[in-house]
């Protein structure tokens, strides 16, 4: 169980998180939705420990997050964030390049690449030689390579065509379900949300404005949620022009 309690974080005068409370149960797939600049990425980076909150805390199974938490997570970044200077297989098996597993690192990388639908011919290419969709797949392979307990996905379908987005959604759903991992995804892609989520939380003005299951989302009459999910310009949410 990951618990986020009263999280506050400001950048100068800009208060991005203004008291976020959230609980994510083990094995569930939570999708966090919200408009651009609503604090989704900041929230996920604060949960990970990449940003330090001004107030509040993140606990894992009731104890404060430690450095060891990083060894139990995998993350797919919005732009994949692959290391340009390393071939694909070294990106995927990055954790194995040192330590006792390094002899088998390449074979392991090829196996994980196959799980995301990429052949062994991709292993020796560099990230710059791959399309955006393939880079996302490699990023996904890197995220799942160490068999993590918690997976984070930051805008996994941004910049992809609908077909490739569908492929990535299916892969995320499959790896999360097959591995029994907890999945936390941030997105503003409604198709992605429907494909991935067990539960949805909407962040608005730095707080969790609404949360519930997909079924509850369909029947909710919350005006903010309705406006956001239907994509309307008219409503209580004022876009940042």
């Amino acid at each position: 169980m990951i618990s986020v309690t009263d999280l506050h974080l400001s950048f100068g005068q800009n208060a991005v998180l203004r008291g976020v409370d959230l609980e994510i149960a083990q094995g569930e797939s939570l999708v966090i939705i919200g408009g651009s600049g609503s604090g989704k990425s900041v929230l996920i980076k604060t949960i990970l420990g990449l940003l330090t909150p001004d107030e509040g805390q993140v606990t894992i199974n009731g104890t404060p997050r430690t450095a060891a938490f990083m060894s139990s997570i995998g993350m797919l970044f919005q732009g994949a964030a692959l290391f340009d200077s390393l071939p694909v297989w070294q990106n995927v098996a990055f954790r194995d390049l040192r330590g006792p597993k390094r002899q088998d690192a390449r074979a392991h990388a090829v196996k994980v690449l196959a799980e995301v639908g990429l052949g062994p011919d991709v292993a020796d290419k560099y990230p710059g030689e791959l399309s955006g969709g393939m880079q996302k797949r490699v990023g996904l392979a890197r995220a799942i390579a160490a068999d993590p307990d918690v997976l984070f996905f930051d805008e996994p379908t941004t910049g992809l065509d609908p077909m490739m987005a569908g492929v990535i959604n299916a892969l995320i759903r499959r790896v999360a379900t097959d591995r029994g991992a907890t999945a936390i995804t941030i997105t503003h892609d409604m198709a992605s949300m429907h494909a991935i989520a067990d539960r949805v939380a909407m962040i608005h003005e730095g707080r969790i404005h609404w949360q519930g299951t997909l079924a509850e989302l369909e029947t909710s009459d919350d005006p903010h949620l309705r406006q956001f999910t239907s994509g309307g310009a008219d409503g209580p949410i004022q876009p940042h022009w």
Binding site: L48, M75, L82, R95
Partner: peptide, 12 residues
């Protein structure tokens, strides 16, 4: 390009 953040998430 968030590669530094990626290093953190890979325990590096």
């Amino acid at each position: 390009t968030e590669q530094i953040d990626a290093l953190h998430t890979l325990s590096t």
